[in-house]
Amino acid sequence: MYELTLIGIGTGNPDHVTLQGVQAIREADLILIPRKGESKADLAGVREEIIAKACETPPQIAYFDIPTRHSDEGYLQGVDDWHDAIALRWQAAIAEYPDVTKVALLIWGDPSLYDSSLRIAARLHPQPRKRVIPGITAPQALTAAHAIPINDIGAPYVVTTGRRLRDEGWPANATKVAVMLDGECSFQSLDMAGYDIWWGAYVGMKEEILIHGPLIDVAQQILDTRAKARADHGWIMDIYLLQKSTR
């Protein structure tokens, strides 16, 4: 039996890791790091930098390759099968170190918000003891970077994905919507004259890019900036907040 700790590391800035997260890194016997191909090698490098900054003597590190996700049988079934495949990669990596008692994964953002690590962990056999260390979320980092509140006074806000915004449109009764996991810039599906946007990429990192304004005015700037940044770095993580325009 081992303990599996999922450590939220924020949006890539080593300073986002809480003291609790640093302590969990120091206590780990083994840390699993995913590899997503040469074009996204920087993602593993960020995790390595965080580990090196947290402790003088790093724990053992085991790398595993992220399998390809397929959607031949539909999106949800494809995700379900993908999670099964990732769980098998975790198990195989951990099995190479039979004497470890504390295993950790560094989770981008927070393990509770649009991250599947807890669902993947539930597929491990036998089940380890699980511990979660919260991290700064992408919406927190975005609103901090733009120095804005995420909600209006006494009002709720919606967090959703690009796919749902594109397929279902603007959420009913929402005035502010944070959109994550949007590789297709789904704000283009809206009547862009009716919204303001606060967009950010690599938020909190030295590569941070921020754009804000009426959506109709800055949409093309975001599209061009996003495409160039992805080409320059080989990967991109971005998020945006939309608000119905009051003009």
Rank of each mutant, 00 (worst) to 15 (best):
T5Y: 00
L6P: 01
I9S: 03
G10C: 07
T11Q: 06
V17W: 06
G21K: 06
V22I: 14
I25N: 00
E27P: 04
P34V: 02
S39W: 11
A44C: 06
R47E: 01
E48P: 05
A62V: 05
Y63E: 10
F64N: 02
D65G: 04
P67W: 05
T68V: 13
R69H: 08
H70I: 10
S71I: 15
D72C: 08
Q77Y: 05
I86R: 03
T101I: 09
I107W: 00
S112H: 06
L113T: 01
D115K: 00
L118P: 01
A122L: 01
A122Y: 00
H125V: 09
P126W: 01
P128T: 02
K130Y: 00
V132Y: 03
I133S: 04
P149V: 09
P156F: 15
T161S: 15
T161W: 04
R163V: 02
L165Q: 10
N173C: 15
A174K: 13
T175M: 15
M180W: 08
D182R: 10
E184P: 04
D191K: 12
A193N: 14
D196H: 14
I197V: 13
E207S: 13
L210E: 11
V218Q: 04
D224V: 12
A227G: 07
Y240N: 10
K244M: 13
